[in-house]
């Protein structure tokens, strides 16, 4: 079982987004916003605090390569690590467990529509 604390929605969203490839600050921000349908709209403070925490826990690192050369060389790119991917999976499983529980207790209809 996972020993780490559950990830915050923002951290989870960041990890999931990075799962699709390295990204830098602003792009991350936009992706997270779009994926969450506007519910997650972090300011730069929250964003970088979350990134710092993820780095501290070893779930992401600063990417050494620059995918897009035309971009400003000073931008920092972030990349998800193996541990990060594991953490995503574990978190996803945890949420599945919650969902199942909720369905069992009749809080959510047993069959949801797609989406």
């Amino acid at each position: 079982m996972s020993t780490a604390a559950p990830l915050t929605p923002l951290s989870m969203a960041l990890l999931v987004t990075l799962g699709g490839g390295d990204l830098h600050g602003y792009a991350l921000l936009r992706e997270v916003e779009e994926r969450s349908g506007g519910t997650l709209r972090p300011g730069t403070g929250s964003l970088y605090a979350a990134l710092q925490r993820l780095m501290d826990e070893g779930l992401i690192i600063e990417s050494p390569e620059r995918p897009d050369d035309a971009d400003d060389a000073r931008r920092k790119y972030y990349r998800i690590t193996g541990r990060g991917r594991t953490a995503v999976v574990e978190e996803a499983r945890r949420m599945e467990g919650l969902l199942a529980d909720a369905r069992r207790h009749g809080l959510i209809p047993a069959r949801e529509g797609r989406g």
Partner: peptide, 21 residues
């Protein structure tokens, strides 16, 4: 408003991101 070390690590990026925003 942010702690010093954090600032030092991310100031440049934060400003850039915010500017674009």
């Amino acid at each position: 408003l942010l702690p010093r070390d954090f600032r030092r690590a991310h100031a440049a990026d934060m400003e850039r991101v915010f500017r674009e925003r």
